[in-house]
Design a protein around this nucleic acid. Structure first.
Lengths: 155, 155
DNA sequence: TGTGAAATATAACGCTA
DNA sequence: TAGCGTTATATTTCACA
């Protein structure tokens, strides 16, 4: 499976689906001026090529009762491979974690979390982050707002 | 429209759909032991309540030709409301931006970006970030890996 | 690309607890 | 009020021409 060849139509399809995967094949085809069968075929091909890895429902976290978001920067004291991987596994499975970035630099992980309130945020850090021995330091930054970006297909 | 009352079934539905929104209503109902009509009704209700805001296709950015990801921290020199908002608007519409966080603390924005290579990353910062007068400083951190977290429904 | 048959989704209905 | 099962209608999916 070599590098897939993507034309402009594929990029338009991906751009649309990455914004709204609910569009029916019918309207998707009409929007791009494709035959329905062709459109369905191309979307399926993009899935089989692994370009589209899946689709996810987006949730309103505030309405769900988690109106407070934060980025928690996590710095380790020891960087053996097992330490890093075990902590990573633990962090991504902690309840409230939306995304976990393993990064280069002074910090090792950035955690994007959503919680009920400030108290829950404090408890999260204590229970799921600093409770790990290997964690040397954390820094918690309140998130005012998150916006989805234009993505890589905006050009 | 007050605060919606979510029971355990709703939380299971949301947990499933936020992981894989492609499941058919039929299998979704079977998995939770609901009648198909009930299942469809509840999902629709969650949409109408605004809990489910939409669904998005997830893309494999590396396969798409953007194998390099980074977090760019952006610090402003002036924080008037118009400055902040105008920059925010510009940043989220810059090609390659996956997400933009407006945060509290020394930095103002964290940008999660995906690019073709290191050169493109440099160009992105120069063209779409530091080119704005109001930007005083940036700090770019390479992302080794991103993982989706357990989410808020993991409990 | 177009077509047609099978599968599925949607929405409305009445019935029950 | 919420769940269920059943309809009829619309739509999607898939294999094939």
């Amino acid at each position: 499976m070599g590098k897939p060849q993507l034309d402009q139509v594929d990029r338009l399809l991906l751009g649309t689906l990455s914004t709204d995967a609910d569009v029916s094949n019918k309207t998707l085809a009409a929007r791009l001026g494709l035959a329905e069968s062709t459109c369905a075929y191309r979307v399926r091909a993009l899935r089989e090529a692994g370009i589209i890895t899946g689709t996810r429902a987006q949730l309103d976290l505030a309405l769900l009762g988690y109106p407070l978001q934060a980025i928690i920067m996590v710095r380790l004291g020891s960087h053996t491979m097992t330490n890093v991987n075990q902590l990573y596994d633990a962090l991504v499975s902690a309840p409230g974690v939306i995304q976990a970035f393993h990064v280069a630099g002074a910090d090792d992980f950035y955690l994007h979390v959503a919680v009920e309130n400030a108290e829950a945020l404090r408890d999260f850090v204590l229970q799921h982050v600093t409770s790990h021995r290997v964690v040397r330091q954390t820094e918690t930054h309140l998130v005012f707002e998150v916006r989805g970006g234009a993505g890589v297909l905006a050009t």
